[in-house]
Amino acid sequence: MGREAQVKESPGRIRRFWEGFRYGLPVTLGYVPVSFAFAVTATAGGLPWYVVLMISITNFTSAGQAAGGNLMLTGAPLPEIGVTVFVINIRYMLMSMSLSQKMTGMALWKKLLLANGVTDEIFFLAMQKKGNLSGWLFAGLAAGPYGGWVLGTLLGALLGAALPPSLSSALGIALYAMFIAIVVPPSKKSKPIAFATLIAVGLSCLFRYMPGLRLVPSGWALILSAVAASALLALRFPVHQAQEEGEAA
C-alpha cells in the first residue's frame, strides 16, 4: 500500500470499523439465538461440543453447516458432505459477485480475508450502503455477527441439553424472521424489488411442490429461482448504476 493511501486511511480506520460494527449490531444479536439453535440440535444428535464449536468457527454459515452437521451425525462419506454443503452455498457466489462491484480497487489480500464474512445478512446490509465499500467498514460489519455466531454456538453446545425442546423449536424461525425484516423495507419502497422477491418466492414454491421439479436439490433450486427472477427483472426494469446508488441511499 502506498504511503499516501496510508496517511489518508489510518485516521478513519477505527471509525469505519466501529461504524460497520454498530451497523451490524442487530445481526450480531440476532445470530446468537440462531447459532444457539444449531448447536443444540447438533450436540443433541451426538456431536461433541468442541466439534460443533469448530464448525461454527470455520464455516460461519447457517444452512450449510446445519446440513453438514446432520450428515456428519449419520457418518456420511466426505464427498457427499462436500457436495451437499457446496450446493447449499452456491448462493454465496451470487452475493460475492454483487459485492465485488462495491469493492473494485480493493487489495486482493483484503478480499481474501473479508470473503469469510459473506453471509446472507451481512451481505445484505453491506449492499444497502451507498457507493464503494470500505474494507474496514465491512470488517466491522462482519466481526460482530461472527462473534455472535461463535458465542451462540458455544452457549448452545454447553447449555443446550438443559433447554426444553419447545424453545429450540421456536428458535428455528429466528433466521427466517431476520430475512423477512431485511427484505420487506426495500420491497415496500420499490415495486421492481418487490416483484423480484415475489417471483423468486413463487419459483421456489414450484421447486418445492411441483412433481418433477421437486427432485432438484434445494441448493440448485434456490440458485435457479434467484437467477430467473433477477434476470427477468433486469430485462423488464433495467437499473442504471447512478439510479441504484441514489435509491440505496
Binding site: 448462493r91 459477485m97 446472507d120 430475512f179 426495500p186 424489488i193 422477491t197 434456490l222 434467484a226 437467477v227
Partner: peptide, 11 residues
Amino acid sequence: YMPYAVLGAMT
C-alpha cells in the same frame, strides 16, 4: 435484483 431474489427464495 439478486440479493432480494435470493433472500425471497431462501425464506
